[in-house]
Design a protein around this nucleic acid. Sequence first.
RNA 1: GGCGCUUUCGUCUAGCGGCUAGGACACAUGCCUCUCACGCAUGGAACACGGGUUCGAUUCCCGUAGGCGCUACCA
Length: 534
Amino acid sequence: MAERKVRVRFAPSPTGPLHIGGVRTALYNYLFAKQHGGDLIFRIEDTDSSRFVPGAEDYIIESFNWLGIKFDEGVSFGGEHGPYRQSERRDIYKKYVKVLLDADKAYIAFDTPEELNAKRAEIENFQYDASTRGMMRNSLTLSKEEVDNLIAAGEQYVVRFKIEPGRDVLVDDLIRGEVVINSSILDDKVLYKSADELPTYHLANIVDDHLMEVTHVIRGEEWLPSAPLHVLLYEAFGWADTMPHFAHLPLLLKPIGNGKLSKRDGDKLGFPVFPLEWHDPKSGEISSGYREKGYLPGAVVNFLALLGWNPGNDQELMSLDDMVKLFDLSKCSKNGAKFDYVKAAWFNHQYLIQQSDAAWVPAFDKVLKDNGIEATAEQEAEVVRMMKLKVIEYTDGQGNKKKRNISFASDLWPLTKFFFVAPTEFDKEDKFIKKNWASPGAGRTVHADGTDPGTAEEMNQMLAVIETINDFSVEGQKAVIDPWVEQTGARPWNAWRVCLVGAGQGPDMYELAAFLGKDEVIKRMKFAIEKLSE
RNA sequence: GGCGCUUUCGUCUAGCGGCUAGGACACAUGCCUCUCACGCAUGGAACACGGGUUCGAUUCCCGUAGGCGCUACCA
């Protein structure tokens, strides 16, 4: 057969927020499509009217928009193979159900759910198939007149696929190789329900993939057991020669405990399982999302791509474009991957530290506002500049490149709080304070001249020196303080940091002092000396 | 229960008959340093088990055990 243009699809059900596993499936479809110059289709599978959740469709579209995964056609994207919402394709499915019925590949069944349950209770491991359909109420056991009368009388029915038993069905999977399943273990699946005039997943899926000219079906492993059924359906329709290739992806598992990652796990285990925050319209429950947690979309995509696939070398940091070049279905792993959210944070860290100053300022501005701080743009830029020295990448005195440990933008607050808020109390049991604030005789503030003034007194001496400084720039401070340090042999740095920061963190002390200004520095020092002398 | 998929460090994984079994996250230690970090260096840490095939199995085959999935008028 002729080489067809690659066309793949991502087809979620609008039953709630998009699960992170679904994001990965969509991502792989996207990578595969782009790599082959093909199309990615966005189809909504809303054949179960009872599970429809308003807002889910928009949520899914917004999620992919944020993640940078672009669709070529489908719901909200347009295209020539529409409509792309299955609930709008009723007439199409009806037509194909009739095709199967006319060809004697399917039959009508009137068994009610109650009757089926009764049978299941009566017969152990009951399965509606070639061995049992002869004792059920269907068009195979009823006369044509009876069937017509029942339908005319408004009786609800379903259409079932008539599976011939005893056949080994071959599924050629791009990831797993050849999988063979005997048709005898398959049941006569319901293809269509008269109650809502909609098909079930299986029928809709095959009809749509065929009509939309899908060439590759890349989906989760949970579909592998029903893949033979799908193969049989393609055959029944006479579409075997254009049947898409299958690739069943391994599942995403819970990081701890057993089972696959479910929608409920995330917030229970302390990490999001949804790309965006989701507000459940019924329960009002809020589930956290990666975007709101402070993740960068590139980091999420990069992390997810490597859960079940790798380029075959040691490269881990990749852009979407890199991945399009490197992606390879045959390099996908076959076994489920535990979701490692600690590594997700590391990826975000990597992406965050690559951000430019310009990207930091608005994020930082938001962090400050969230904490009730009104800062000028100049102040924000200055802190970002200062933090960049330490935060993003800088070269220290030894010529070593250094970086800052920030995994999320919100991490900035504890790291920058002291720029705007003076310490209000000091924990004398704090390791850093305990180590760097000593009384005379404790031996930690002995000066070169042999005197031991104690840290409080040393800070008082430093205070006196600072009060004489007129130019409070970094250079201005150095010009006065450095000689004093040299002369007395004082070691004021950590104690000074206690005064100004209240903890063992922050940028270079001269830089910090210059940012705070002389008055604030003096104020904080006096306050600290008083508090710590109590 | 039945059917299918799967099995390399704690986690994600490389490996496609012969390797001191490699990398990353996490962890530990050291270095750097006015602090915390960052960074750098070092370290501990794995082929589920039992049979085959082979001169030789982490690698191929078969069992066993574990994990996962499916078994709806849900997708």
